[in-house]
Simulated scan of single mutants.
Amino acid sequence: MEANQNLLTNTCGFAGVKPIMVDLPYPDIQVRAKNQVYANLLSVDYCGATSELSAITQYINNENRMSCEKCPLAKTILGIAMAEMMHLQKLGELIYLLGGTVDFVARRQNGRNVMWTPGFLSISENVRNMILADIEAEKSAINQYRMHMKVIKDDCVNQVLERIIKDEEYHIMILQVLLKECS
Rank of each mutant, 00 (worst) to 15 (best):
Glu2Trp: 11
Glu2Tyr: 14
Glu2Gln: 10
Ala3Pro: 00
Gln5His: 13
Leu7Phe: 10
Leu7Pro: 04
Thr9Arg: 13
Cys12Pro: 07
Gly13Asp: 15
Lys18Arg: 14
Pro19Asp: 04
Pro19Cys: 02
Met21His: 02
Asp28Thr: 09
Gln30Lys: 15
Arg32Tyr: 07
Arg32Ala: 12
Ala33Tyr: 11
Val37Phe: 02
Val37Asp: 12
Tyr38Pro: 00
Tyr38Ser: 04
Ala39Trp: 00
Ala39Gln: 01
Asn40His: 10
Asn40Pro: 04
Leu41Arg: 02
Ser43Val: 05
Ala49Trp: 02
Thr50Glu: 09
Ser54Val: 01
Gln58Phe: 04
Tyr59Ile: 03
Tyr59Met: 04
Met66Ile: 05
Lys70Asp: 11
Pro72Arg: 05
Ala74Phe: 01
Ala74Val: 04
Gly79Pro: 04
Ala81Leu: 07
Glu84Lys: 11
Met85Phe: 06
Met86Phe: 08
Met86Asn: 15
His87Thr: 08
Leu88Thr: 07
Gln89Arg: 10
Gln89Lys: 14
Leu94Thr: 02
Leu94Gly: 01
Leu98Met: 06
Gly99Met: 07
Gly100Glu: 00
Asp103Phe: 07
Ala106Lys: 04
Ala106Val: 06
Arg107Trp: 04
Arg108Met: 12
Arg108Gly: 01
Asn110Ser: 13
Asn110Phe: 11
Gly111Ser: 05
Asn113Met: 05
Trp116Asp: 03
Gly119Glu: 09
Phe120Asp: 05
Ser122Lys: 12
Ser122Phe: 05
Ile123Asp: 07
Ser124Ile: 01
Leu132His: 06
Ala133Thr: 07
Ile135Asp: 02
Glu138Ser: 07
Glu138Asp: 09
Glu138His: 07
Ala141Asn: 09
Ala141Gly: 12
Asn143Glu: 14
Gln144Glu: 12
Tyr145Gly: 01
Tyr145Trp: 03
Lys150Trp: 04
Val151His: 06
Cys156Asn: 12
Val157Ala: 03
Glu162Met: 09
Ile165Thr: 08
His171Pro: 05
His171Ala: 02
Met173Ser: 12
Met173Asp: 13
Gln176Phe: 02
Val177Glu: 14
Leu179Ile: 06
Leu179Arg: 10
Leu179Lys: 11
Lys180His: 10
Cys182Trp: 02
Cys182Leu: 15
Cys182Ile: 15
